[in-house]
Design a protein around this nucleic acid. Sequence first.
DNA 1: GCCTGAACGATACTCAGTATCAAAACGTCG
DNA 2: CGACGTTTTGATACTGAGTATCGTTCAGGC
Lengths: 238, 238
Amino acid sequence: MARPPISQRLAAAAIALFNENGYDETTVDDIAARAGTSRSTFFRYYRSKEDVIFPDHDALLAKVEARLTASTADTAIVAVCDAVRLVLTHYVEDAEVSLRRYRLVGKVPALRDREIVSVARYQRLFREFIAGWLSDSPDAALRAELMASSVVAAHNQVLRGWLRAGGRHDPFGPLDHALQYVITTFRHLERPQDRAEDAGQVVVATFSRAASPEAVMDAVRAHLATAGHTGPRGRRHE
Amino acid sequence: MARPPISQRLAAAAIALFNENGYDETTVDDIAARAGTSRSTFFRYYRSKEDVIFPDHDALLAKVEARLTASTADTAIVAVCDAVRLVLTHYVEDAEVSLRRYRLVGKVPALRDREIVSVARYQRLFREFIAGWLSDSPDAALRAELMASSVVAAHNQVLRGWLRAGGRHDPFGPLDHALQYVITTFRHLERPQDRAEDAGQVVVATFSRAASPEAVMDAVRAHLATAGHTGPRGRRHE
DNA sequence: GCCTGAACGATACTCAGTATCAAAACGTCG
DNA sequence: CGACGTTTTGATACTGAGTATCGTTCAGGC
């Protein structure tokens, strides 16, 4: 009996029990028992009870890192899109598993938190690489953070849509669309120093904390009326 | 003896012990003992051992939600900026605590994960509100996700920078700068149908008489960022 | 056959988190 | 002041995750 390797039997038993009795109601002993092995062995294969649901995140993370490492600032956009596609592919290839996990994670707060943490790791990876590519430009850290979070958000958005729809349609079209959004959005920031010029005019209004809204409005109106505006964006706060 | 309320004594004891002996090496019993109370009482005040480090996240979340609820699609940008500022303000007001926590969280993976989860809750909040405001436009879900993640990323970036620098400088300038980035970035995605007609006009946000000077300034700043502007056409409601 | 090393299982332990209940502390009203 | 109901606290016991240890089993190689 019991042909498949222990780790898979454990994972299968865990998912089955989680669905039957709920996550919190299932103990590791239960899982091990159904898998026909012992509690000790469970923890030998999975570091925690949650781990049995999120298996190969480490491997996927490594693949993403490899793809990003293989790129330079010149090919950054392509690399990022490629890497994101890598992740989505991983989910799509195991649609059955992904869907079961999605439904489960939706029900169990502990698992949702765990997934959020996993996603943050991807975002961190992206952020570090992008920051490296941008290192010589101003606001590199900020822009890297924004780009990384946008890329990850785009991916998550597409993935969630695909999962919610039962994993039936092809998600790569929507993914390209979303990534296009991101790329277009950030093209504006390619040369941040240009932005100051094209903005052309900025209001500078200084006022005390106690100023009434009317007084502030008057100040703003006055500044807008006087065409002589030069300074950069406003500071506030005494 | 023991003047301050129990919850504060517990928090103080916890932080002290975490710094002295490390997080994992400190048991809840230790904390309760140093605070001069019992383990039961600890869990009566804090749901978990981690909670003692992240106290009023719920309250802050509620404040943010209140600020967002008080807005409509018209004043969305202002509301979002305001809400973000609310969060940063909360950290800055308790700089001492924030810094201690920052150093601790940097060392303990469990706490870092917890913080990531907390941040995700803010992001979710932003996403839902923005999605509501955008509900009638195409790609609403995607855009909401991108905007929310960008806003949160901008905040985090600024906050981390401030914390890393020891909390010495004023972070609101950098925050405004970062938010400006985000606003500028999303400008071309915002209400594309308005873009043709808004040339040459300043649109000033409407706000209540009770609005704080900051809020007013935000309105002006945000609208100036969103719209190409030349002369004032200022009107003010209410 | 025997030796060696890895995989496995049993046991025991720590500690977070939950539930329960009894004993204080406290304010209130008579 | 004293009886009474409420709230706060503390003690105890329990579940279950995660860790450590150790003896056993099982594999293949000599």
